[in-house]
Structures are given as structure tokens and as C-alpha cells.
């Protein structure tokens, strides 16, 4: 008859019970502080500043939508937005097509697959560094090795970085060169496509090309989607390439939005204007992301 005495319920004070129920919250305290201080507050005040003429030295003297008006009427900002779109629409598709193409070949029974994977992946790891930006300037210098190479074929290469039409393309190439991380994701996805699907298709007499578009691509749409969304977000924020390689030139031909935001905020101290421009960019990326998410049901295939 001693058993009931042992299992007597332990009485907990309400405070202790609250603690038991919220242990998880305790572990999130640092994150909550971090979110409020380093994300939420800056996010909200950025929106606030965007409706002011905040200047780092002079402070705020005027409220209103003047920043937004000048963003959509000033040639400097509209050009930057146009160039950024152009940059994203060149970089993202090229990068994804390259990544998928190479991943597709690597997925055949290839020897030294790890060696190839490493070689293709190195640029993704180093590409963001200043060192690679320096290298890019050396490659695309007027007397750089790209032009020397073109010279062998009798082509007189342009002065890439000083040419309004080519400078942006050089900045794009720096990003396309870093297709390795997207490729690694595609490769992992391709390995996950069940082999019996291909076998069935081969028996039915479907060609390799047909199989690629009717089996491979649909099966890996979740990863295509993921890559697309992340690459668009990245492309719209590109800063290092234009800042280090071309300083936005020649004649603003490579002044992408992120660089212009920096110039407003930290060169001419027009912080209100910088915030407004950053917000315009943010809303554009948001719209593109929402479009991608809502279009998902038409083209992204989730097996589970």
C-alpha cells in the first residue's frame, strides 16, 4: 500500500509551471533581442527615414513623399533601377542554366566527379572576395588576358571596363562564374530523381532530350524554384562587384541600386533618400518573390 504515496502529485507554483511551459522561450531570448534591436527597429526606422529628408549632419527638416517622387522622376535613380533589372535578368538565368547544364552532365556516371565538382565550386567560395575583384580587373583590362586571347582570333576586344555597353556584362560574368553553389544544389536534386522513371521512359522510346524536359526538369522544380528566389534576391543586392571593379562607372553604367543607396547614404549623407531607394528595391524584390511563390502551383512539383 505504499505505491500511492510515491506517486503523489508534485505541487508546482504557477511561476514554476509557467517556466516549464516556456523553456523554449528562454532559449529564444537572445534571438528575440537580436531580432528587435538589429532587424525590427532598423527595418521600421528605415521606412520612417524614407519619408524624411534625413541627413547625417543636418538631421530632419522635412517630411513627405519627396524621396519617392524623385526616385521615379530623377534620371539617376530610374537608370539605376533599369540597370539593376538588366543585371538581374542577365545574371540569374545564365547562372541557373549553366548550373543545371553542368549538374546534368555530372550526374551521368562520370569519373572524377568530385574533382570536377570541386573545380566548379571554388569560384563560389572565393568569388565574393576583393581578391577576385582585383583579378577581374586584370582579366578585363584593355591589355588584359581576355583581349590578348581575342587577339589570337583576330578580334579587337573592347576596353571592357571603360565601355558603357560592356562594363555591366563584365560585372554579370563575375556572378555567373560563381554558378557552383547552385550547381551543387541541382546535382543533389538530380541524384534524387528515381531511376525507374528514366527506365520506364526509355522503354517507351522517349529520347534523352524528351526525358530531360519531361522527367528531369519537373522532378527538380523545387530546387529550381529555391535557386531562382535566392538568386533574384542576391542579384538585386549586388554591391561588391560594381563598387570594387568599376566604381559604378563608366558614366554610371554599372551603378546598381545597392551601390547608389551606398552613395546616397555614405557619400552625400542623404540618408532619407538612401532609405527610400532601399525600400523601393525591397518592394521590387518582394513582388518578384511573391510572384514566384504564387506561380509555384503551376510549375513546381512537390512529390510529398
Amino acid at each position: 500500500m505504499s505505491a500511492p504515496a510515491k506517486s503523489q502529485p508534485v505541487t508546482r507554483t504557477p511561476f514554476k509551471r509557467w517556466c516549464d511551459e516556456n523553456t523554449g522561450l528562454f532559449f529564444l531570448i537572445p534571438w528575440i533581442i537580436g531580432f528587435l534591436v538589429f532587424k525590427a527597429y532598423p527595418f521600421a526606422s528605415s521606412l520612417f527615414y524614407s519619408f524624411t529628408d534625413m541627413n547625417f549632419f543636418k538631421g530632419i527638416h522635412q517630411y513627405g513623399i519627396m524621396n519617392y517622387i524623385s526616385i521615379f522622376t530623377d534620371r539617376k535613380t530610374t537608370t539605376a533601377l533599369m540597370i539593376t533589372f538588366k543585371y538581374a535578368f542577365i545574371t540569374v538565368p545564365l547562372k541557373l542554366v549553366f548550373a543545371l547544364f553542368i549538374a546534368y552532365i555530372l550526374n551521368f556516371k562520370i569519373k572524377f566527379v568530385n574533382l570536377f565538382r570541386t573545380v566548379y565550386y571554388i569560384p563560389s567560395i572565393l568569388g565574393g572576395s576583393v581578391a577576385i575583384a582585383v583579378l577581374w580587373r586584370a582579366l578585363f583590362k584593355d591589355t588584359g588576358i581576355i583581349n590578348t586571347l581575342l587577339g589570337f582570333f583576330g578580334i579587337q576586344g573592347p576596353n571592357w571596363l571603360a565601355d558603357r555597353n560592356w562594363a555591366l556584362f563584365v560585372i554579370c560574368l563575375l556572378r555567373v562564374w560563381q554558378f557552383g553553389s547552385a550547381m551543387v544544389l541541382f546535382l543533389a536534386a538530380l541524384k534524387g530523381v528515381p531511376a525507374d522513371l528514366y527506365e520506364a521512359a526509355t522503354i517507351d522510346g522517349a529520347s534523352k532530350t524528351k526525358q530531360f524536359f519531361s522527367i528531369t526538369v519537373p522532378m527538380i522544380t523545387p530546387v529550381i524554384f529555391y535557386n531562382l528566389v535566392t538568386q533574384i534576391a542576391q542579384a538585386f543586392q549586388e554591391f561588391n562587384g560594381p563598387y570594387i571593379i568599376t566604381q559604378g562607372g563608366p558614366r554610371n553604367a554599372t551603378t546598381l541600386v545597392a551601390l547608389l543607396v551606398y552613395n546616397y547614404a555614405f557619400q552625400s549623407n542623404e540618408m532619407g533618400m538612401a532609405c527610400a531607394l532601399a525600400w523601393v528595391m525591397f518592394v521590387i524584390v518582394m513582388i518578384l518573390t511573391i510572384i514566384a511563390f504564387t506561380s509555384q502551383k503551376h510549375w513546381v512539383y512537390y512529390s510529398d
Binding site: F35, K39, P42, F43, V257, A265, M271, F282
Partner: peptide, 21 residues
Amino acid sequence: SIMISTLFLPQVVLNVPQYLM
């Protein structure tokens, strides 16, 4: 969900207020 949504928050938007802070 808030944590996930901050994945989509570009650093460019936060730079100026962070600098002032």
C-alpha cells in the same frame, strides 16, 4: 514565421538605420 521572413530582408534596407544606431 517572423524568423523565416527575415530571410528575405535585404541588408541594404537595414544599413542606414544600423549605421545611425
